[in-house]
Structures are given as structure tokens and as C-alpha cells.
């Protein structure tokens, strides 16, 4: 556990909020943002909305399925280039 954790202000927390939700901060900063969210209702609201937002975006993936015709076409093109899908 990093031992130079500072208390950060709202501006600082908000600036890093998406980095935090994406787990793209180093350990120290992740802890600092988390501690701020634990004590700041306003910033927590932003974090919770951001979290819902990102989770909903991830489900976009499930709604876009590749047509099977594309797969067979790609395999055909590869086969012409020597690929053999045994």
C-alpha cells in the first residue's frame, strides 16, 4: 500500500474520475481518488453516473453481431490465399 496518500480536492478528483473508473491510474492515485469519493457525496454522484454510463457502453458489444456471410467470405478469401481450416 502506497504511503504518501494525500487528501485531494474535488477538482483533482473529477479531473481523474474517468481514469479512476477505467483503472488507469497508478496505485497511489487510485487510492487518493477512492478516499475522496468515500468522503465526498457530490463527487460520488459523478462517479456512480460515470460507472453506469461505462457499463452500459460495454453492452453495446452484445448488440452488434457479425453476419455469417462475412465469415464465409473471409474464409473463402483466405482459402484462395492457401489457408486450410482443417
Amino acid at each position: 500500500m502506497p504511503d504518501n496518500i494525500r487528501a485531494i480536492d474535488c477538482q483533482n478528483a473529477v479531473r481523474q474520475l474517468w481514469d479512476y473508473l477505467d483503472a488507469e491510474l497508478d496505485d497511489q492515485r487510485m487510492t487518493e481518488v477512492k478516499q475522496h469519493l468515500d468522503t465526498c457525496r457530490h463527487c460520488l454522484e459523478h462517479a456512480e453516473f460515470g460507472q453506469r454510463f461505462i457499463q452500459a457502453l460495454k453492452r453495446v458489444r452484445d448488440r452488434h453481431v457479425m453476419p455469417s456471410a462475412v465469415r464465409s467470405q473471409v474464409i473463402a478469401v483466405l482459402s484462395a490465399a492457401g489457408f486450410s481450416a482443417e
Binding site: Q11, V14, R15, Q16, L17, W18, E45, H46, F49
Partner: peptide
């Protein structure tokens, strides 16, 4: 952008 988004969410 992050700060502006929070402001708009507010």
C-alpha cells in the same frame, strides 16, 4: 473534458 463533463452532469 473530464471537468466539463462533471459540470454538465451537475
Amino acid at each position: 473534458e473530464a471537468i466539463a463533463a462533471a459540470r454538465e452532469h451537475r
